[in-house]
């Protein structure tokens, strides 16, 4: 970001498309309409986040769920939960939005090359992991085995279901699904993601596990991975926090002496284990 730019001023954008991802969750495709905005987002990375503004309602931070290198549109998965997200859900194609970012650190995709990758996504927590999956699929020969565990409370809350075929079809890639509670049509796994993980029991050898979901899920996924032999430098997550600036000033996302916005949102398990204050 240029020194002269105001980091609290959003870049202007336009809603190009929205679609229902799951019950209460919409995918927003946003086109940046200012030159400065396009320059700022020219080299964003998987795992970074941005603030989306619904002018008049405010702004809120979201993990970027689109993938660098897959076109200029930015994508966000938005769960309708509060004032800003209600307003975002009411917007129509063509409506203006504001985008502030890209912010935070990112998944170390270079460092992960050659490793077997285990992805564990819970509910909308899968959204910031999607660019990791896409990046691996787009450079499939650079990475080892890819195992995806994709979970939700119920089948209607699974996100990016229309991409499952693409994921499954990729070389050396497996996708496992599970839901806490099934319905009449559900024939796949029922149970917690940790139970599924224990059953599949992926080898920790040359592996890195990347997880995101509700804090309680992250906590137990880490414990289960440890049981399977994953070391603390083989486990990554990205944390959600309430934020109002994204640049380490407003204080809202502090986790002990760390700020999720600038020290994260991506953390290794050993970093989290060393924090004075827990994220749970």
């Amino acid at each position: 970001m240029r020194e002269s730019a105001n980091p609290m001023r959003p870049y202007l954008g336009r809603l190009v498309e929205t679609r229902e991802l799951a019950t209460g969750i919409k995918l927003f495709q946003v086109e940046l309409t200012e030159r400065e905005g396009n320059a700022a987002f020219a080299d964003y990375r998987p795992g970074q986040f941005a603030f989306l503004s619904a002018f008049g309602a405010g702004e809120a931070p979201f993990g970027i769920t689109s993938t660098p290198g897959r076109g200029p549109l930015l994508e966000f998965a938005v769960n309708e939960l509060g004032h800003v997200t209600h307003t975002l859900h009411d917007l129509e194609v063509g409506d203006p939005v504001g985008i502030r970012g890209p912010l935070g650190n990112w998944f170390p995709m270079e460092e992960l090359k050659g490793r077997n990758i285990l992805i564990l996504g819970g509910g909308i927590g899968g959204a910031p992991l999607r660019p990791v999956i896409h990046t691996i699929l787009d450079h499939r020969q650079d990475y080892g085995h890819l195992t995806i565990l994709w979970a939700a409370r119920s089948p209607d809350l699974l996100i990016f279901t229309e991409e499952f075929d693409e994921w499954r079809a990729a070389w050396a890639t497996e996708l496992y699904l599970t839901v806490d509670q099934g319905d009449e049509e559900w024939t796949d796994n029922v149970g917690l993601i940790t139970q599924l993980l224990e059953r599949i029991a992926p080898s920790p050898e040359n592996g890195v596990a990347i997880t995101c979901g509700p804090p309680i899920m992250i906590h137990f996924v880490f414990l289960t991975l440890q049981k399977l032999g994953f070391a603390s430098d083989q486990m990554l997550t990205t944390l959600e926090a309430r934020m109002h600036c994204g640049i380490g000033k407003c204080g809202r996302c502090n986790l002990g002496e760390k700020f999720v916005c600038v020290d994260g949102p991506v953390f290794w398990q050993y970093e989290i284990a060393g924090f004075l204050e827990g994220f749970l």
């Binding site: 809120a60 769960n79 939960l81 509060g82 997200t85 509700p214 804090p215 959600e240 926090a241 309430r242 109002h244 407003c250 204080g251 809202r252 996302c253 502090n254 986790l255 204050e277 827990g278 994220f279 749970l280």
Partner: peptide, 18 residues
């Protein structure tokens, strides 16, 4: 804002680490 307030760290989904 104040870190001593109830909602300081509460996220939209309801989780509050403090």
């Amino acid at each position: 804002d104040a870190c001593t307030s109830t909602n300081y760290r509460r996220v939209a989904g309801g989780h509050n680490p403090r």
